[in-house]
Amino acid sequence: MSRAPRGAKRSPTPTSATFPDFPVSPQAPAPPAPGAPDGKPLYLCSPFVEAALVKGNFKTIVMLPKYVDIMEWVAMNIYDFYNNLNEFYGVISECCTNTSCPKMCAGPTLNYTWINQERKSVHLPAPTYIDYVMTWVQNLLEDESVFPTKSGHDFPPSFPATVKHVYRQLLRVFAHIYHSHYAQILHLRSEPHFNSLFAHFLAFGREYELLEMKDVKGAPGAPVGIGALYDKWREMGTVEA
């Protein structure tokens, strides 16, 4: 099983190679995302919440194929999730600016903070934060010691922990797009594609224990809107049985 050619390298990240956990700050609420008149986010409203390219439960397409190594299967899917999400963000990035998104938010009371080189938690504009995350992931994907592509090279013992870090950060990019830029996704008539990508991402993460539900749903005092989306898709039978 081979992987597709890798894309162009992004600018180097100014942070260290070790990617820490990012604490969540409930301070400075972000502006509410566009939604229905009753205040419900558009991605939870019909017909948008039902829009998908794949009908049925996404669990059926995340199962490990016969004779495929589980590490290789996870690595290949991480590569695909990264590239697809990066393409979506690239399309709507003109709407994600330092002015429109001065903080990396995923809810009216939820902001993610960055740990800088001085080990201090700082707020960053969403486009800067996302660029740092996507740069870090691409650097990992291009590192043969982390994501080996040559026959005879084994995955490192730290690979499962690394993949969980990757998953957590990609989830935050998804969360920001749903919260702040779903109107642009609708304008492009891409909601079936974006919903399908995220449902696939959730189903895969749950199947291989890469996702923590606390990251999906957020803290009690700072819930994440995609947590409600996840619950809705569970009721619909889109993710999990």
Results as ranks from 00 to 15, higher is better:
residue 45 C to V: 15
residue 102 P to A: 15
residue 99 T to S: 12
residue 204 F to P: 00
residue 55 K to E: 07
residue 215 D to W: 14
residue 93 S to D: 00
residue 1 M to K: 12
residue 18 T to L: 08
residue 57 N to S: 07
residue 76 M to K: 14
residue 99 T to A: 10
residue 162 T to R: 15
residue 191 E to L: 03
residue 109 T to C: 08
residue 154 D to W: 03
residue 10 R to H: 09
residue 144 E to H: 07
residue 234 R to N: 04
residue 169 Q to M: 06
residue 96 C to P: 02
residue 113 T to M: 05
residue 31 P to H: 07
residue 140 L to N: 13
residue 49 V to R: 10
residue 23 P to I: 13
residue 110 L to S: 04
residue 147 F to G: 06
residue 99 T to E: 02
residue 225 G to M: 09
residue 201 F to T: 06
residue 191 E to N: 14
residue 86 N to W: 06
residue 171 L to N: 06
residue 152 G to T: 15
residue 206 R to I: 15
residue 24 V to M: 11
residue 3 R to V: 09
residue 106 A to H: 14
residue 140 L to V: 02
residue 152 G to Q: 10
residue 80 D to E: 02
residue 159 F to P: 07
residue 144 E to M: 08
residue 76 M to Q: 09
residue 208 Y to D: 12
residue 139 N to R: 11
residue 117 Q to I: 08
residue 74 V to I: 15
residue 93 S to K: 12
residue 106 A to C: 15
residue 48 F to Y: 06
residue 69 D to N: 07
residue 207 E to K: 12
residue 181 H to I: 01
residue 190 S to Q: 11
residue 174 F to K: 02
residue 202 L to D: 02
residue 38 D to F: 10
residue 64 L to V: 05
residue 122 V to H: 01
residue 34 P to N: 04
residue 40 K to W: 03
residue 148 P to V: 15
residue 216 V to D: 00
residue 181 H to L: 10
residue 40 K to Q: 05
residue 188 L to M: 13
residue 17 A to P: 00
residue 56 G to N: 08
residue 236 M to K: 09
residue 189 R to T: 13
residue 208 Y to W: 08
residue 42 L to A: 00
residue 113 T to W: 02
residue 60 T to R: 15
residue 17 A to V: 09
residue 150 K to I: 13
residue 70 I to V: 14
residue 114 W to L: 05
residue 117 Q to E: 00
residue 228 A to W: 03
residue 199 A to F: 15
residue 146 V to W: 00
residue 97 T to Y: 08
residue 5 P to I: 06
residue 170 L to F: 01
residue 189 R to H: 14
residue 197 L to W: 05
residue 11 S to M: 01
residue 203 A to W: 03
residue 16 S to Q: 10
residue 58 F to V: 08
residue 237 G to C: 05
residue 156 P to W: 11
residue 49 V to D: 03
residue 173 V to F: 03
residue 67 Y to H: 14
residue 45 C to Q: 10
residue 3 R to W: 07
residue 95 C to I: 04
residue 187 H to V: 06
residue 157 P to T: 03
residue 222 A to W: 04
residue 157 P to K: 01
residue 212 E to P: 04
residue 206 R to W: 05
residue 122 V to R: 07
residue 49 V to P: 00
residue 237 G to D: 02
residue 175 A to W: 01
residue 120 K to G: 02
residue 21 D to Q: 11
residue 130 I to T: 06
residue 71 M to K: 15
residue 180 S to R: 15
residue 71 M to C: 07
residue 120 K to L: 12
residue 206 R to S: 13
residue 85 L to M: 04
residue 54 V to N: 01
residue 161 A to M: 07
residue 167 Y to Q: 05
residue 109 T to V: 14
residue 172 R to E: 01
residue 230 Y to I: 03
residue 4 A to H: 09
residue 204 F to K: 11
residue 2 S to E: 00
residue 53 L to S: 06
residue 27 Q to V: 11
residue 93 S to R: 11
residue 45 C to W: 03
residue 235 E to Q: 07
residue 20 P to V: 01
residue 166 V to I: 14
residue 55 K to L: 11
residue 110 L to H: 03
residue 158 S to V: 15
residue 205 G to C: 10
residue 104 M to I: 01
residue 115 I to A: 02
residue 154 D to K: 14
residue 201 F to P: 05
residue 117 Q to L: 11
residue 144 E to T: 12
residue 191 E to M: 12
residue 112 Y to M: 10
